[in-house]
Amino acid sequence: MGQTVKTLARSRRSEEITAYLFLLPVTVLWFVWFLIPTAYSMFISLYKYSFVAVSQNHFVGLDNYIRALTDPAFYKALRNTLFLTFVAVPAQSLIAFVLAMALNLKIKFRDIFRTIYYVPYVVSTIAVTTVFMYLFVKGSPLNKFLSLLGFDNVTWYVDFKLALPFITIVYVWQQIGFYIVIFLSGLQTVPNELYESSEVDGANPFQKTIYITVPMLKPVIFMVLAYGMIHALQIFDQVAAVAQNQPLGSPAGATSTLVSFFYVQSFKNWEMGYGSAIAVIIFLIIFIFTMIQKKLMGSEE
């Protein structure tokens, strides 16, 4: 008896050690290349700080945070980002799920279809935005069609109301491929037996999806939603590409997002202290959202 307890304790400890060893390389890299620079940036968020004019740097306490939280431009960026996130995340997850299901069927040219559906994620943002700019320019065939549905025939990305939806469309369109890959590889973990036995019970494909696929994919769905949100709340590339040579967030801040706002402060205005404070706030916002989501989704194990 005592012997068994000892062996159990020993195997527990060996499991623990193996776990730490498995995590060690990543931890080392993370410590050096993530924690140090991040801690440094958080530290300078308490300073009036610029990398370039070091002699003028000085401690300002929470001033940078107060400045950000009282800046209307910050709230505009926050509103834009939240809009984008709450439209983009459900849209991209749902579309990617449906397409992944289709691409998982035994169809002809499946390899080719899968590759094509991955193309938007691969093609550089320059090409994608260029094409979308032609599609949504005033007088384009698509715009003429949309005007029948009640949209104004205007250039979307210079319109204050439509510029943000434009960015959202480009973003979703580019991200779908990423989530298709995740769903596709997730679908492989669903054991065939489950489908087979449900067929015996006479379940239709829709029922199979709802009662077998979705519950089995819960960990993957959690990841797609959580990462989707984390990523969308940090959208930047599409904003920069659409801005072209104009200031980020053009026209006049209509497409400014949290990260583009932070980028302007840090890299354009060289106010790294202020920029870092904004980044810390961005981090906190995302952290809170993710934790809420984790609670809502429940334990996924």
Binding site: V32, W33, F34, P37, Y40, F51, I230, F283, F287, T290
Partner: peptide, 23 residues
């Protein structure tokens, strides 16, 4: 550790690129 993994994705990369470059 799992929460730290999640949290590490929430820091905008542009924040750390300059200190990283200096290192």
């Amino acid at each position: 550790i799992f929460i730290i993994v999640l949290a590490s994705m929430m820091v905008p990369f542009q924040l750390i690129i300059t200190p990283m470059y200096i290192m």
